[in-house]
């Protein structure tokens, strides 16, 4: 199997002894969101997850809900965000995260090609479990877009095996039972999910959902290959952190996992 750009980049870095950091930025949030993407790329991200906002984000907590609503209210569209990503020049692979209706409405083939043409390496579609992946999964693969699958704390072992085998780019371990959002402390499930995924697969295993601070990121990478940090960053963007503030937070996370 030929490995995609995203998986190769993450594997190479991991195999060189580096822990992986994937920050999440809501596409279309504020006029300077593309600047934020670039700043985050320069501040130590190994890949960047870009949220394409959806009207009904059931996997997201209050922070990303608010960011999605603000982006949509200011006129953000999937095609506008993807077109902007084509000129992002972030220096690291880009992965979009969106809900399946956005993909379904565009059409599998059209969405896969549009992403590929914009230079987007991967896609995360949290409400499209492995059982329903056919259609999108095939079109994405043939366009060269890596579909990252999620493993939850409730995923039984046999199913986890199948998900790890089918996931491309990396495996996204959901660290906590719940929606995206900051948590005061790291859930014990985060390390459990990381441990079982690492036992099953050699593909990079990143843990996301509920990783809010440099300390928590550091705890998780004791087992996992890396972390995805979303709400904690978007929260700062909603408070006006801008590209500089986002870069400073990402640098802080970077320093914590490199220490």
């Amino acid at each position: 199997m030929v490995r995609g750009v995203l998986e190769k980049a993450l594997r190479d870095r991991r195999d060189a002894g580096r822990k992986l950091l994937v920050p999440y930025v809501t596409g279309g949030l504020g006029r300077d969101w593309l600047e934020v993407v670039r700043a985050v790329g320069a501040a130590g991200a190994d890949a960047i997850e870009i949220g394409i906002p959806f009207s009904d984000p059931v996997m997201d907590g209050p922070v990303i809900q608010r960011a999605s609503a603000e982006a949509l209210n200011s006129g953000a569209t999937p095609s506008g965000i993807i077109a902007a990503l084509a000129r992002a020049d972030a220096g690291v692979p880009l992965v979009v995260m969106t809900y399946y209706n956005i993909v379904f409405r565009a059409g599998h083939r059209r969405m896969a090609r549009t992403l590929a043409e914009a230079g987007v390496s991967g896609a995360i579609v949290p409400d499209l479990p492995i059982d329903e992946l056919n259609g999108w999964g095939d079109e994405a693969s043939s366009a060269g877009v890596e579909t990252v699958l999620l493993v939850a704390p409730t995923t039984p072992r046999s199913r986890l095996k199948a998900i790890c085998a089918r996931s491309r780019g990396f495996v996204y371990g959901v660290g906590v039972m719940g929606v995206t959002g900051e948590r005061a402390s790291l859930s014990a499930t985060a390390l459990k999910v990381a441990t079982v995924c690492k036992e099953e697969t050699d593909i990079p295993v990143l843990i996301g959902v509920g990783i809010s601070s440099p300390e928590q990121a550091r705890e998780v990478i004791a087992v996992a290959d890396g972390v995805v940090v979303g709400s904690a960053l978007v929260h700062r963007l909603l408070e006006g952190a801008g590209p500089e503030g986002a870069a400073a937070f990402v640098a802080e996370l970077r320093a914590a996992i490199d220490a």
């Binding site: 499209l128 492995i130 329903e132 039984p156 959901v174």
Partner: peptide
């Protein structure tokens, strides 16, 4: 797979699939 023709199915986050 819970289909009624092309409709239906189970499009939920992984956390909910076992439930």
């Amino acid at each position: 797979h819970g289909r009624f023709g092309e409709f239906g199915g189970r499009f939920v986050p992984e956390s909910l699939v076992p439930a």
